[in-house]
Each structure stands twice: as C-alpha cells, then as structure tokens.
Amino acid sequence: VGDQVLEIVPSNEEQIKNLLQLEAQEHLQLDFWKSPTTPGETAHVRVPFVNVQAVKVFLESQGIAYSIMIED
C-alpha cells in the first residue's frame, strides 16, 4: 500500500476553509492537484501513505465527502 489520491467534495464554504487549512499543514506533505474553490466541486489531493489515515479521520470528523481516486 502506498500513497493515495483522494477525490474530495466539499459541500459548503466552511468545508472549503477546512480543506485550505489542511493544505497549509506542511508536515502532512499533501499535494493538491486541484484545490477546493467552490462547494460541490471536486478537489484532488495526493496523500503520502504515512498520512492517509490522519487525513481520512480529519475529513470524516468534518463531514467532508471523499473517495479514493487512485490507490498506489
């Protein structure tokens, strides 16, 4: 199991704000291929294997929908 690319769908401005804060966490080494800008629009982010669980827990705790787009 390696890195994953998640497709994330924020449903409101609050969730977009939370994702932008997540993007700013440099220690997570997230690679946003497509940043969140509009509710209902997908964002794509590559998550290093060591941080996959932490990111998924965060998304679930914020009620942000996501799916695994690419499993490496």
Rank of each mutant, 00 (worst) to 15 (best):
residue 37 T to M: 09
residue 14 E to C: 06
residue 63 G to P: 01
residue 63 G to W: 03
residue 20 L to M: 12
residue 65 A to W: 14
residue 57 V to Q: 13
residue 14 E to R: 07
residue 8 I to V: 08
residue 49 F to A: 11
residue 43 A to S: 10
residue 36 P to R: 01
residue 12 N to L: 02
residue 70 I to R: 07
residue 26 E to P: 08
residue 27 H to K: 08
residue 29 Q to S: 09
residue 47 V to P: 00
residue 22 L to H: 03
residue 51 N to T: 05
residue 54 A to W: 14
residue 17 K to E: 08
residue 28 L to S: 03
residue 33 W to T: 13
residue 21 Q to R: 13
residue 45 V to E: 00
residue 21 Q to G: 08
residue 37 T to R: 06
residue 63 G to K: 05
residue 25 Q to E: 08
residue 10 P to R: 01
residue 8 I to N: 00
residue 7 E to W: 13
residue 50 V to H: 12
residue 15 Q to Y: 01
residue 9 V to M: 13
residue 67 S to P: 00
residue 30 L to K: 01
residue 29 Q to D: 08
residue 34 K to H: 08
residue 69 M to E: 04
residue 62 Q to C: 14
residue 37 T to E: 05
residue 59 L to H: 00
residue 26 E to H: 12
residue 27 H to R: 06
residue 38 T to A: 13
residue 47 V to T: 02
residue 46 R to K: 07
residue 43 A to G: 04
residue 57 V to E: 13
residue 7 E to N: 08
residue 9 V to I: 12
residue 5 V to S: 05
residue 35 S to T: 10
residue 55 V to Y: 03
residue 55 V to E: 00
residue 3 D to G: 14
residue 29 Q to C: 11
residue 62 Q to G: 05
residue 28 L to Q: 03
residue 51 N to R: 05
residue 34 K to L: 06
residue 18 N to R: 13
residue 52 V to D: 02
residue 62 Q to I: 09
residue 15 Q to F: 01
residue 54 A to M: 11
residue 39 P to N: 03
residue 14 E to A: 10
residue 51 N to H: 14
residue 1 V to G: 13
residue 58 F to T: 03
residue 69 M to V: 11
residue 61 S to H: 09
residue 49 F to N: 07
residue 44 H to S: 08
residue 11 S to Q: 11
residue 10 P to Q: 01
residue 13 E to Y: 14
residue 13 E to G: 06
residue 62 Q to A: 13
residue 56 K to W: 03
residue 38 T to Y: 10
residue 22 L to D: 01
residue 26 E to K: 14
residue 7 E to D: 05
residue 29 Q to M: 12
residue 70 I to K: 10
residue 72 D to C: 15
residue 8 I to L: 08
residue 22 L to W: 11
residue 38 T to I: 13
residue 36 P to C: 04
residue 29 Q to N: 12
residue 26 E to V: 12
residue 63 G to V: 02
residue 20 L to Q: 10
residue 44 H to D: 01
residue 11 S to N: 09
residue 17 K to A: 10
residue 62 Q to E: 06
residue 59 L to P: 00
residue 33 W to G: 05
residue 51 N to S: 12
residue 2 G to W: 12
residue 24 A to Q: 12
residue 36 P to A: 11
residue 67 S to K: 13
residue 1 V to W: 13
residue 54 A to K: 11
residue 57 V to W: 15
residue 65 A to R: 12
residue 54 A to T: 10
